[in-house]
Amino acid sequence: MMSDTHQELLQQFRQQILAASATGSAICIQGGASKSWYGESVAGDILDTRTYSGVIQYEPTELYITARAGTPLQEIENLLAQHGQMLAFEPPHFGETATLGGMVAAGLSGPRRATHGALRDYVLGVSMMNGKGEFLRFGGQVMKNVAGYDVSRLMAGSMGSLGLLLDITLKVMPRPACETSLAFAMSEQDALHVLNIWAGQALPISASCYHAGRLLIRLSGSESALRLAKQKLGGQELEQIHSYWAKLCDHEHHFFIPEDGLALLRLSLPSTAPALKIRSKSLIEWGGSQRWLWTHESMHSLREQVQAMGGHLTQFRYADPAQPIFTPLSVPLLKIHQHLKKTFDSASIFNRGRLFS
């Protein structure tokens, strides 16, 4: 049941969208602005989602939660923690003002992504408003097969370019009974090798990070599962380092301190891809699939090298304005993107240029 206040807010959103569509002016959809630096810069009148807030429905026994887009992400996670549950994709916040809608729009996942899946895998349903001010609903409260576009998951990572997210339903998971971390001293090449070996074994690894000659892995599960894994893997057990993984997730690890004149590069690669033979400072996550770089190497040539290895490169932060933030789409993918944009936002008013020009 929607309150009168929330109905009034939806009408205000609709009026702002219709006015922008009529004049062709841009709208910048924004929640807590904790990720406003991510993606290409945008202009336009702010549509602030934070007033459209609150949990609509939470069923711990059914493992799902539905909340409004402006709900603080910390509020969602605190509520889940009270019931021993979590968002298994471990989303980064990048600030105390992060909202649920911004989390979905950015589509970012944290250290558990390699073993538990990405944010988009947990989106069960959304309601949204398109460029015509129409209220649309997709998905529901359960996972199911979808023919054609799964619009609910399509909104993950869309950066607000397709429409205004209103209500979001997410699958939640139980928190692990126990967790611990192990540390190993080794080279980058050896770390990538053992991570790929371990990925093919029944080990309760829930996160990994390699930086400056040290590989850290997090084990999550039952006490007996962790005991067996520690016996098999060896390494140095590190206690009381939960904050390490939280800081890594939110880029508070010292690696992410800005380098003068350099962009923070995010490389998505097959986990089996070898170590890059370039001069750089790097940090590796997700069993080798996510690699962060600070480097003076040519952005163009590095992007070509990454694509040749089956991956892509993003200027994640502190971007060089002369280079595109995201890897340009191939012609077939660009046509699909343009078709979707025209279908949901025919006047191109939402977050204009945030993903691609």
Rank of each mutant, 00 (worst) to 15 (best):
Q11A: 10
S21R: 14
A22R: 05
T23E: 14
T23F: 04
T23G: 06
G24V: 12
A26W: 04
G44Q: 02
D45K: 14
L47W: 04
Y52I: 00
V55T: 13
L63V: 13
Y64P: 08
G70K: 02
L73D: 08
Q74R: 12
I76L: 14
E77Q: 12
L79Q: 01
A88P: 03
F94M: 07
L108P: 10
P111C: 14
R113M: 09
R120C: 07
V126I: 13
K132D: 12
E134W: 11
G139M: 00
G160P: 10
L165H: 02
L165G: 01
D167W: 04
C178I: 00
S181T: 09
S181H: 14
S187F: 15
Q189V: 15
I205Y: 10
H211F: 13
R218F: 10
L219C: 10
S222G: 10
L226E: 04
L228M: 13
G234Q: 01
G235I: 03
E237D: 00
L238P: 10
E239F: 13
I241R: 15
I241V: 06
S243E: 15
Y244E: 02
K247H: 13
K247P: 02
L248Q: 01
L248C: 05
L264D: 01
L264V: 10
P270K: 01
T272R: 10
R279S: 03
S282R: 06
L283T: 11
G288C: 03
R291Y: 01
W292R: 03
T295W: 04
E297V: 14
S298Y: 04
M299G: 14
M299R: 15
H300V: 15
G311K: 03
H312Q: 04
L313D: 00
A319Y: 05
D320C: 05
Q323D: 11
I325M: 02
V331G: 05
K335W: 15
K341V: 01
N351I: 00
R354S: 01
